[in-house]
Design a protein around this nucleic acid. Structure first.
Lengths: 144, 144
DNA sequence: TCGTATTAGTTGAAAATGTAACTAACAAGC
DNA sequence: GCTTGTTAGTTACATTTTCAACTAATACGA
């Protein structure tokens, strides 16, 4: 029933990427979920504000490749938890400058440290060249 | 990497994997969604039955790493579209043997061919060794 | 063979997501 | 000024996912 040219899901790149991503992110996801009750989109918004400082929602959408409704909801959730503040911008009152509160920065620092640990542990199973190739390929897939 | 010790999301493996997976799967997802009205879990169930023949829902869960509720609903949806049939197993009446109908097999063949095309196009941007390394690393992440 | 535990699969409700429509502010042309 | 179009962001609604509870069949031990 299976000829040689039969399609193999086990080598189908989108499938591999999804499965690998799920497996790799599982522990970290459990951490920010259990400890902070966050969703992935919330963690991403928190990260971008923590890493890059004040941003508008639009900038977060672009940088984090997050849809604007997800961003909007993530910002609202983080605001409700007092992790960030909004400030309407003077020259364009449609936009809001978003910045982390002290509590938000603390959460960011904690999560970034944990993420770095998980990342190190994941990468430890690869050689230096494997790691470099992996990241380069993933980057190319993202951009392409 | 960056000079300071600040965590970089751009190199965080789970993030890269998710983004790359999303980007890579986008076109294929649009295809099976537009043409067959399928969800990802439905495509995966269809694939496993098309590729490996008759399976129980449990076996699909294990092989496709799909939660049993997702599998259950995917099977129900495929059945409603007359893509598969169920047959209660004699020796254990809890289990059902799932098999594709002719229409289901036709859909599988079409989708597998399209997937192979997309895969080839994605892999074309990598050298032979890059492709090998990428798959090997992803496989290791999945299993680990 | 009776009671308890386990397994296969389904279901309902709550949470999250995606899509499209919406408001409010700005911009550009006249 | 006014009209039209665009952009930032929110909201409503339908779809999808998740979680926990559930049924039904089997397994196992006293």
């Amino acid at each position: 029933m299976n000829t040689d040219d039969e399609f193999e899901i086990g080598t189908f790149l989108p499938y591999l990427l999804n499965q690998a991503g799920e497996a790799a992110g599982q522990e970290f996801q459990r951490y920010y979920k259990d400890r902070y009750g966050m969703l992935r989109s919330e963690w991403r918004v928190l990260f971008h504000l923590g890493r890059f400082g004040a941003l508008t929602a639009r900038e977060i959408c672009d940088r984090a490749r997050l849809h604007k409704t997800k961003t909007s909801r993530a910002v609202a959730a983080l605001e409700a938890r007092r992790f960030l503040k909004r400030a309407v911008m003077v020259h364009d009152r449609r936009q809001e400058q978003l910045t982390l509160s002290a509590a938000g920065q603390a959460a960011y620092k904690d999560l970034a440290a944990i993420a770095a640990q998980f990342d190190a542990r994941l990468m430890a199973q690869f050689s230096r060249t494997e790691a470099a190739t992996l990241r380069r390929c993933l980057q190319r897939l993202m951009d392409g």
